[in-house]
Design a protein around this nucleic acid. Structure first.
Ligand code: MN
Ligand code: MN
Ligand code: MN
Ligand code: MN
Lengths: 133, 133
DNA sequence: TGGTTTATATAGCCTTGGCTATATATTCGG
DNA sequence: CCGAATATATAGCCAAGGCTATATAAACCA
């Protein structure tokens, strides 16, 4: 029996916030000495209690360790997820740019698209991007 | 000041369920004499009360007219939105197929991706797809 | 036509992910 | 080192979009 596309999309969305948070923590961690709640508030554009509460869920799910009123760290699982989604993000931006989308717009769209690209599609895109360098 | 990609994605998601419902009602309406709740339940893979409640929201927002215990119709606004999103859906499937994604997988991924493709990107994709026919 | 089956509505519950207001802890400058 | 400023935590609210259980209406058919 054929998979239901709407169910797939709903499923994608259940991991979306987690993916964005760990990717962001991962990326910020390369610049700063440590990543703090305020950094995420700034980057995500949501209210501070939203970040605090979301981090609790991510901790519950084993993706981050939060040292209260101090820094936020990725667990091994969190770092692994972050590096996967980060790679996918970069690839999608390149892909969109390759077909003529301006970088700025590609970045905006990729932030949403990245959560809906299957393994199979990711491989096809990677081949395509490689093939035109 | 540069737009926040996370805010854009959150905004996209606020119209996503509406887009899928009207697109589906539109598409089903071409086969069947009339579209009923049960048809949406089947296609979406959610429980029946979920569809009933969602239709109430869509009616509140002026996208559908629900004749209780009878058929569901699109308003002019609903039909217009449906035709836009339907066109985008078809284009994305073609685009993915053009870079080597199997049709089945393209359909699955497109159902999520379609909600995150900007006007600018849609135009670029359309040019690309046209250019290789 | 009446009884059974099927479809829809209604009640009530849950989690996620938003928000504001405010309390409390940490940090920084004088 | 203390007070002000800043950052974080906590309380409490809300809407969306899921769910199950059950009541009721509509459709079918013997
Ligand atoms: Mn994202
Ligand atoms: Mn999405
Ligand atoms: Mn969709
Ligand atoms: Mn679609």
């Amino acid at each position: 029996m054929r998979e239901n596309p709407y169910a797939r999309t709903r499923e994608d969305h259940r991991s979306e916030v987690a993916e964005d948070y760990v990717e962001l923590i991962y990326r910020l961690g390369r610049d700063r000495a440590e990543v703090r709640t305020a950094d995420l508030v700034e980057a995500l554009g949501v209210a501070q209690p939203t970040v605090t509460k979301t981090l609790e869920r991510l901790q519950r799910d084993g993706l981050v360790n939060v040292h209260p009123r101090r820094r936020i760290e990725l667990t091994a699982a969190g770092a692994s997820l972050a590096s996967d989604i980060s790679e996918r993000h970069v690839l999608i931006v390149k892909f969109l740019q390759a077909v003529g989308v301006p970088k700025e717009v590609a970045e905006l769209d990729a932030e949403g698209i990245e959560h809906h690209v299957s393994e199979t599609t990711q491989r096809a895109i990677a081949r395509f991007v490689r093939g035109r360098q």
